[in-house]
Write a protein that binds this DNA or RNA. Structure first.
Length: 615
RNA sequence: GCCCCCAUCGUCUAGUGGCCUAGGAUAUCGCCCUCUCACGGCGAAGACCGGGGUUCGAGUCCCCGUGGGGGUACCA
């Protein structure tokens, strides 16, 4: 059933062409635009025209790319050969401005991958239950399906990463679908944040984003099909009432609902439905046992008596998640559903729906959740949980990706630092995904980030550093604009920083015209013995006037001063460092001086001398 | 309550019956390098949740506990 391009999933999708205007027409904004009305009615009212409308509109608009080309991948990598200081990579751009979801995605190089390995001759790694016509190889189709009810959570990001990694590795297709059927909680803003987060991580999708809400008609049709085939029933009962009765009788609520439905005389349900009486549609869970195989957990078995007759269509006519995913995953030809462990118990329900609907079942892979430092589910109280938070803290997307990949997975050898994403793609395999949930350890993240930072060419770091220096007071604009000089500076700082923030902080003494003096350092290197400090600095000033401004001569001169005054080099270097940087620590002093230049060095030294004299 | 999943140093993990006196990484501590801070090098300390089995032999297989997590919605 080579569903290379599912009929409705369209060869189109909503490509994020140029800009942020992400889809002003769907639920969230439609509601918002309504101006304060209650949520539900607005949505329902908007449905026929609204949803469908946007779908078609964008389909038309997207007509130019019926090729199925990836969204983010197509853009000629803005990153290479960027000449001007224009921010290309990390969305650094203007803070707060909605970023284009994929336009700025760093090219990941997987295209080379694709070219290099055609799926044809290879053994098909996907043991899908889906049988295909002999010879035809069906490529892996995976998806990431976040619901826009919050920002991109690190757990979600990891799930997305695994899917992406697998798709790239197996030459498959990575589909992005936004599950926005929870009208009350879904928001455009969140969708944007999620797309931005994915793009930031370099996880470009090949299709989508599709919006689940666009499929409601199809979902509804599926529910109706089940109803017609007697695999589902109409439930006219009041939820609260059912719950109460279920409690009284110690039964599952859904079984009570089923009893009531079954007790209805023939034809009555149809009549009442016809008459417009509101009711939900419930799936009738068959007797027996439901099994499915899971790539990480192996064979899973659930007794059907433990599975409720789930509602598949609400009384307002909107579909419920479990039905919507099944319908969508089928529609989009997803053949491996890799998602969080929290869906494990949803899976038998979905498997049952696949079977009832006559859809081929995909394979499943449930990856463990990510926990906080206390072993509890990662949540806000553990600090930053949104990938955007880490972006702000100056974590590099490369490092984040690397770190996330290592959470619940390992390459089977000692490698931990994957500088190139290609290496990660190469090493990744779903067989090595762990079952155990893991704790999100920010210390290790920062260590990894430090490693990436140290290895990254300074030139590539420039934009990010600039982004953080933009609002610095007393900044020397000329220096900031001097790319060559900034590169040298970043080169000195990157190895001693764990985050871009830290790096930018280290740059402060160099790019500011006014120094801020660390009290601790002043106390230690000046205040303790002002006359000595004064003497050393004075002498330095004299000597440096005539020293050739280069690494070796400077070192020679400064050590010479120390010898002359008969003290260790540190005794003259510390007061000097304090004078020229205001700090207790900095990159190697000779390099600092070279970078600062004679003029600024001497000026700062003079100012320092004055300060010392005033002590 | 019921169903399901999981369980090796603080943390990330290697380990698929003998190669384990349990390996690596991080974090911590010490030493070295050194003008400081980092980096780097060397070293220390640190774990098989408990109890039963199976086996000549168990971190590894089975059972029972315990602990943690997830689900149990007209949320996704």
């Amino acid at each position: 059933m080579a569903r290379e391009r599912p009929p409705g999933a369209p060869a189109v999708g909503r490509r994020q062409r140029g800009g942020p205007p992400l889809r002003r027409g769907f639920i969230g904004s439609a509601r918002g635009a309504g101006g304060g009305g209650s949520g539900l009615p607005a949505c329902c009212e908007g449905r026929p025209g609204g949803h469908g409308g946007t779908w078609h509109r964008s389909r038309d608009a997207g007509g130019r790319d019926g090729t199925g080309e990836g969204v983010g991948r197509r853009r000629p990598g803005p990153r290479r050969g960027r000449g001007s200081g224009r921010v290309a990579g990390e969305g650094g751009g203007v803070p707060g401005r909605p970023l284009r979801p994929s336009g700025h995605v760093r090219r990941t190089g997987h295209e080379g991958h694709r070219r290099g390995r055609r799926p044809q001759g290879r053994e098909e790694p996907l043991e899908s239950t889906t049988r295909r016509p002999e010879g035809a190889s069906v490529s892996l189709r995976v998806r990431f399906a976040p619901s826009p009810t919050g920002y991109l959570h690190v757990g979600g990001a990891r799930t997305a990463l695994f899917n992406w990694l697998l798709a790239r590795k197996e030459d498959g297709v990575f589909v992005l679908r936004v599950e926005d059927t929870d009208q009350a909680r879904s928001r455009d803003e969140h969708t944007e944040a999620i797309l931005h987060g994915l793009s930031w991580l370099g996880l470009d999708w090949d299709e989508g984003p599709y919006f689940q809400s666009d499929g409601v008609e199809r979902h509804r049709a599926a529910a109706l099909q089940l109803l017609e085939e007697g695999k589902a029933y109409r439930d006219f009962s009041d939820p609260d009432e059912i719950r109460a009765e279920a409690e009284r009788r110690q039964k599952h609520a859904s079984r009570v609902a089923r009893e009531r439905a079954d007790a209805l005389p023939d034809g009555e349900a149809e009549e009442r439905a016809e008459a417009g009486e509101p009711h939900a549609i419930r799936f009738r869970v068959p007797a027996g046992e439901t099994r499915f195989s899971d790539r990480v957990h192996g064979t899973m078995r659930f007794g059907n008596t433990d599975i409720d007759d789930l509602v598949i269509l609400r009384s307002d006519g909107t579909p419920i998640y479990n039905l919507a995913v099944v319908s969508d995953d089928h529609e989009m030809g997803i053949n491996l559903v890799l998602r969080g462990d929290d869906h494990l118990s949803n899976t038998p329900k979905q498997v049952l729906l696949y079977r009832a609907l006559g859809y081929p079942e995909p394979e499943f892979a449930h990856v463990p959740l990510i926990l906080g430092a206390d072993g509890k589910r990662l949540s806000k109280r553990h600090g930053a949980t949104a990938v955007g938070d880490y972006e702000e803290q100056g974590i590099l997307p490369e490092a984040m990706r690397n770190f996330l990949a290592l959470l619940g997975w390992n390459p089977g050898d000692d490698r931990e630092v994957f500088l190139e994403v290609e290496e990660l793609v190469e090493a990744f395999s779903s067989e090595r995904i762990l079952k155990k949930s893991s704790v999100f350890d920010t210390e290790k993240l920062e260590w990894l980030n430090g490693r990436h930072l140290a290895e990254m060419p300074a030139g590539e770091l420039l934009d990010r550093v600039h982004g953080r220096l933009r609002s610095v007071e007393h900044a020397d604009a000329a220096l900031l604009a001097d790319e060559a000089w900034m590169t040298r500076l970043v080169d000195l700082l990157k190895v001693r920083s764990r985050t871009v923030d830290e790096l930018a902080d280290g740059a402060l003494p160099f790019v500011r015209t006014e120094l801020v003096f660390e009290e601790k350092a002043v106390a230690k290197h000046w205040e303790k013995d002002p006359p000595a400090a004064e003497e050393r600095m004075k002498r330095l000033l004299e000597v440096l006037e005539d020293t050739e401004w280069a690494l070796d001569p400077l070192e020679e001169a400064i050590r010479g001063v120390a010898d002359e005054l008969d003290v260790g080099a540190g005794k003259v270097i510390h007061p000097l460092r304090l004078a020229v940087t205001g700090r207790q620590s900095s990159p190697g002093i000779f390099q600092v001086l070279v970078l600062l230049g004679r003029g600024r060095t001497l000026e700062r030294l003079r100012n320092g001398l004055e300060r010392v004299r005033a002590l």
